[in-house]
């Protein structure tokens, strides 16, 4: 089983982000970057499939700046076998350009599965996985919450509104992973030490400009402090009054 996992370096969701002076990007100074949490499910699933099969290779691929090497090493520390960084000057705002870069690397490389997180927590685009599938002319199943692979075919469960959809597909295929698929392992200390010695190939790449341009980035408005109107049943009358007169929702 040869599995590719495409990963992205994103700002930690707990980091307080500042907008850079150009008004359309984030100021990276002091920001902590992590492996995109949805990609962690993809890495974990790939490792489990390989462990179950007892043989195979898990390759992590990222497109991004030189700093994404650290993100790749996080996945190597979890247990992936090798990494490829398609090194570019930043990421294009148009997901299709990222998808083209990844597809060129993955094409004809003999992967049985290509996994993505269902989305990146920085841009919320949900685009790159399905686009890569299209560019490689492979079947694509998104937001996979349960996965079985047997005899060259896969069965995936997707959580949809009010129920579960079960999908069958042939390999090779592109899947995007959702929360709940598994519980990603911590990179153990020995894994962190071993990651240094695993192969990490860097290939320079220059994605095209794409059709999109980010023209502005703004922070959400500051949230107002909440109000505690009292405790227990004594507070009900006041709460109802405020909901009616101030919030005007009753």
């Amino acid at each position: 089983m040869k599995i590719a996992v495409c990963i992205k370096r994103v700002p930690d969701s707990e980091t307080r982000v500042k907008i850079a002076s150009d008004g359309k990007s984030i100021d990276e100074a002091g920001v902590k970057f992590i492996l995109n949490p949805y990609d962690e499910f993809a890495v974990e699933e790939a490792l489990r499939l390989k462990e179950k099969a007892g043989t195979g290779e898990v390759v992590v691929v990222a497109l991004g700046s030189v700093a994404a090497q650290e993100t790749i090493r996080t996945a190597l520390a979890m247990g992936a076998d090798r990494g490829v960084l398609l090194q570019s000057q930043g990421l294009p705002p148009d997901g299709l350009e990222t998808a083209k870069g990844l597809a060129a690397e993955l094409k004809d490389a003999g992967f049985d599965l290509i996994l993505f997180g269902k989305m990146a927590i920085d841009d919320y685009n949900h685009q790159v996985g399905p686009m890569v599938a299209e560019l490689l002319d492979l079947p694509c199943v998104t937001t996979v919450a349960h996965l079985e692979i047997a005899g060259g075919r896969g069965t995936a469960e997707r959580e949809i509104e009010g129920g579960v959809e079960v999908v069958e597909f042939p390999l090779p295929a592109v899947l995007t992973t959702d929360k709940g698929l598994n519980e990603p392992r911590y990179p153990a200390l020995k894994g962190i030490m071993a990651a240094k010695k695993k192969p990490l190939e860097v290939k320079l790449t220059a994605p095209g400009p794409g059709a999109l341009e980010i023209i502005a980035l703004t922070l959400p408005p500051e949230r107002q402090a909440g109000k505690i109107v009292g405790e227990g049943s004594a507070a009900v009358a006041e709460l109802v009054r405020l909901l009616r007169e101030e919030a005007k929702v009753l």
Binding site: E70, R73, T74, A77, Y186, P187, A188, L189, I192, M193
Partner: peptide, 14 residues
Amino acid sequence: SEEERAVRDTVRSW
């Protein structure tokens, strides 16, 4: 170093 931070972050999340 990167490894030192990675070790710290693993234990911190745990």
